[in-house]
Amino acid sequence: MVAEPAGVSGAEAFLSIDLPALLAALLAALACALPGNFLVLRRQALMGDAMSHVVLPGIVCAYLLAGDILPVAMVAGALGAALLAVALIHLLQRLGGLEPGAAMGVVLTLMFAAGLVLLEQSGASGAHLDVEHALYGNLEGTLWLGPRQWADLLDPASYRSLPRVLGTLALVAAAMVVLAVLFFKELAVTTFDPGFAAGLGISSRAISLGLLGMTALAAVAAFEAVGSIIVIAMFVCPAATARMFTDRLSRQLWLSALFALLAGAGGYWLAAFLPPLLGHPQALNAAGMVGVAAGGMQCAAMLLAPRYGVLPRAWRARWRRRAGTSPEQGRAG
């Protein structure tokens, strides 16, 4: 609407810089949030963190073996590392007698540290593979040098230059949605009551492995965009926030997807557009702000959610004390 005569137009800047980064943040958040629901309910939230960290040595090894950044090799390396991590975690639990959280903590730090050392020594850092990107991702570097104005979005040709990471993320996010919908019953019953599920002919072990596979896939895809630190926020925060608003698992899944998208969009806006409005010359780290937005949303939900929020509960208790009604009446429903 506003015509800018010279240089890079607002639309072009948005389309080539902000839109791809925003899409990457949204898709990464969505891909992680859906399996995150089941991880949180199974008290395995740390597994998401473990997966996002252990993929680093896998990716570095794949790069060293392939000699270049080959998407297929990267994903294979990352999944291989994830499998190795799952095996190690089980081994530590069985042989070392460690509790699951401790076993995951040991394995994720060990493998991540090994990945960092490998990365530093191998000289892989030339190709977008360096410690900083491993930690913070590369949202700002996700550029789409295709569409120059809004109308170009309708032109199929501009999609040829779509950044590869966006394609991967879209595919993985779509896969997460399909898997969560198709296997909703099976994921739910094995999470709630594994022994009962076995009686239904649903193998808890197979479903658990499938969930770990989904987690690894989401972590691998999101790793490149938002880095390993933020991924854990995407696994836990949307699910935990959604749980504050509903008592139905199906609704929790949809809400978590919504909150993930909100965190992705809100975080990116906070990083890219808020600082200039406040007179700050530089944009903030987008992946970091997405994590902050997700965390902030969860804090707000814990305080304010109508039913389970701390403040509404306190207000209701106070109101009841004043009105002198029985606590049961307020709780029912």
């Binding site: 309910l41 019953k185 099976e186 739910a188 019953v189 999470t191 709630f192 009551d193 009962f196 239904l200 649903i202 749980r243 509903t246 008592d247 139905r248 698992l249 929790q252």
Partner: peptide, 18 residues
């Protein structure tokens, strides 16, 4: 089982039909 699980009584009974 963990009774904090987000499910209604009907959801749990429906598991018997899975």
């Amino acid at each position: 089982v963990d009774w904090d699980f987000p499910a209604s009584a009907l959801d749990v009974v429906a598991m018997g039909l899975y």
